[in-house]
């Protein structure tokens, strides 16, 4: 009995040390990536190529999800607001929830599972098939050539995707609220415009998605780079990317929201 307790306590200690170790390694990895960014920003073509894979290929899922989330908000918002006779505030509800919260958060979650997992799998596979070692042997630093362009592509793509998600969502809310249910179009837009502030709401939403972009891309690239070079290792790392980045997105969202909208 006593022995088993000791073992489990030792296990906890071991896991903690391991987690701290990984965090330190991940931080050094981020530092190296940032340090090697100069070369890839000079050769911007590499980044453009990765924006295609991270951003353009995530476009469909982002736009379709945005439209549906906006349409659902239109329905639900209308039914709730109708109770208080203030269905003209539907525009405010749809726009504020999208621009402040749902846009950055849901698009980041989708980005993590679409582009983040693909990045992890790709880097993990490059490692498993010795492509990274081969690059190293050709005197080319894989961090500068492979990791850094993907990092910047993710960081650039994320806010653009989030903005498209929100814009699409507002359009979805408009479709349901104004076109389908028949809320007055003028009050839908004007109330929205009166309530949504460019700096407080739109800009803060973009800052949020920028932070999420850094977090998701960092996690995805690190998991791929750190993956054991086997098939199981890569698939495990892909799962971890989605789980870790989802948790980190939600945690960061709480912190950022508390920070940004505290005074309002």
């Amino acid at each position: 009995m006593f022995g088993r307790t000791t073992i489990s306590v030792r296990g906890i200690g071991h896991h903690t040390v391991d987690a701290v170790w990984r965090l330190g390694y991940a931080s050094r990895f981020l530092g190296l990536t940032l340090g090697h960014s100069g070369a890839c920003l000079r050769r911007f073509r590499l980044v453009i190529r990765e924006i295609y894979y991270a951003g353009v290929l995530s476009l469909i899922i982002i736009l379709v999800s945005g439209l549906f989330v906006g349409m659902v908000l239109g329905f639900q918002g209308y039914h709730t607001l109708q109770t208080y006779g203030s269905e003209s505030a539907l525009g405010i509800l749809v726009a504020l929830s999208l621009v402040r919260e749902l846009g950055p958060v849901i698009s980041a979650l989708l980005f993590a599972s679409r582009a983040g997992s693909a990045m992890t799998a790709e880097i993990g596979l490059m490692k498993a098939t010795e492509q990274l070692s081969a690059m190293e042997m050709m005197a080319v630093d894989p961090i500068a050539r492979v990791i850094a362009p993907r990092f910047w592509a993710g960081v650039i793509s994320m806010p653009l995707l989030a903005a498209m998600f929100s814009a699409m969502g507002v359009f979805g809310g408009y479709l349901v609220g104004v076109v389908l249910i028949g809320v007055d179009e003028g009050s839908f837009w004007s109330q929205m415009q009166a309530a949504v502030d460019v700096r407080e709401d739109v800009l803060n939403g973009i800052i949020k998605s920028f932070v999420f972009g850094i977090a998701v891309t960092w996690i995805a690239l690190f998991e791929g780079y750190d993956a054991p070079p086997t098939a199981e290792g890569v698939s495990g790392a892909t799962t971890r990317t989605v789980v870790t980045s989802s948790l980190v997105i939600l945690g960061l969202d709480f912190l950022l929201t508390a920070f940004m909208f505290r005074g309002v």
Binding site: T129, E130, Q131, M137
Partner: peptide, 12 residues
Amino acid sequence: MGMLFQFGALFT
């Protein structure tokens, strides 16, 4: 130096 890896390790 040039190195040939076990399965080629071509950039996919």
